[in-house]
Simulated assay, not measured.
Amino acid sequence: MTPYAVRRESHSDFLTLRGLRYHVRQWGDESLVTPDRPPLVLLHGWMDVGASFQFLVDELASIEGPDRWIIAPDWRGFGLTETPQADGYWFPDYLGDLDALLDTLLAHAPADQQIDLVGHSMGGNVVMLYGGIRPKRIRRLVNLEGFGQPASRPEDAPGRYAKWLDELKEPSSLSSYKSVDGVARRLQKNNPLLPTDRADWLAAHWSAPDAAGDWRILGDPNHKRSNANIYRKEEALACWAAIEAPLLWVEGDQTDTDRWWAGRYTKAEFHERLSVVRRVEKHMLSPAGHMLHHDQPRALAERLKAFLGA
């Protein structure tokens, strides 16, 4: 198998954001920004890293050239970003980190500088909230399978808090692997559509060897704990309704939401919720599952180019 060949190289920076040492992967820099090509910010999902977007960046560069500043941070507790001294992770912190990241990277930009914002899965849920909270900051918004969560009821709160308290009593852990090849094969087990060359490349960015020589996922095990807060659908939809930017929604034809929610929340219900957003363009990629930026990076890049240039 020929190793995956990166076509557009990135560079890493470390920034202090809200007291945490944040790793930010960048392709290009602010000198590439034009009114038609503002900074493009890519936000990864749960148990992922910013490097996960390399295949998409490569395909985008092959279609339109490398003249775009692209930014992909590792969320707190993932990748090379520092892990906070806390027992859990909350969406307000992701919003705060994103706001601080943009304030820092765009410190010398005009006050009205907008960005194009893309989020996958958990990152997609973040961008939908942020798009309504900071609507003037976003020129184009892209959600890659950030479905939100099943609706909850206030009476669900006692049980959720109790579950969280119970989980605090048990240490969290993630599996380890004897080699980086073991990590790559796990990635392919999770996603059978992932080609071997991409899996091998991802594994080296998704994990690192520990002192004993075992390879461990670059993610805080505390991410596995239940969130103490119930999902408040009405609050989320109020943020979605405040989005002013055009929204591109992209999903994979093989994504099975029943695997996550067992019928408690369907794709049909999600699309009904999405109707609160004023301008939405929808696309489905095939064959593709939840990791559609790994499965169909070329097709996704073509959709992005058309949408961002519209």
Rank of each mutant, 00 (worst) to 15 (best):
M1W: 12
T2C: 07
P3T: 04
S12G: 09
F14A: 02
R18Q: 15
G19W: 09
L20W: 04
Y22N: 10
Q26S: 11
E30W: 03
S31D: 14
L32S: 06
D36I: 10
P39R: 01
P39E: 01
V41I: 10
H44K: 09
G45L: 05
S52W: 04
S52C: 12
A61H: 08
S62L: 07
E64P: 05
G65C: 13
P73R: 10
D74Y: 06
W75F: 13
F78L: 08
T81F: 06
W90M: 13
F91K: 12
L106K: 07
A109E: 14
A111G: 14
A111V: 15
Q114H: 11
L117C: 04
G119T: 04
M122N: 11
G124T: 00
N125V: 04
M128G: 08
R134F: 04
K136L: 09
R137V: 01
R137Y: 06
V142P: 02
E145H: 10
Q149A: 06
Q149G: 06
P150S: 09
D156F: 07
D156W: 05
K163G: 15
W164Q: 15
D166L: 05
E170R: 14
P171G: 08
P171D: 14
V180K: 08
G182V: 03
V183Q: 00
R185L: 12
L194W: 03
T196L: 12
W201M: 11
A203N: 04
A204N: 14
R216T: 14
D220T: 01
D220L: 02
A228G: 14
Y231D: 02
A242T: 00
Q254T: 05
T255M: 11
W260K: 15
G263D: 10
Y265I: 03
K267I: 03
A268C: 07
A268K: 12
A268P: 06
F270G: 02
R273V: 01
R273I: 01
S275G: 10
V276T: 02
E281D: 13
K282D: 09
S286L: 08
L292F: 10
L292C: 10
Q296E: 13
P297G: 07
E302K: 11
R303S: 13
K305S: 15
F307I: 10
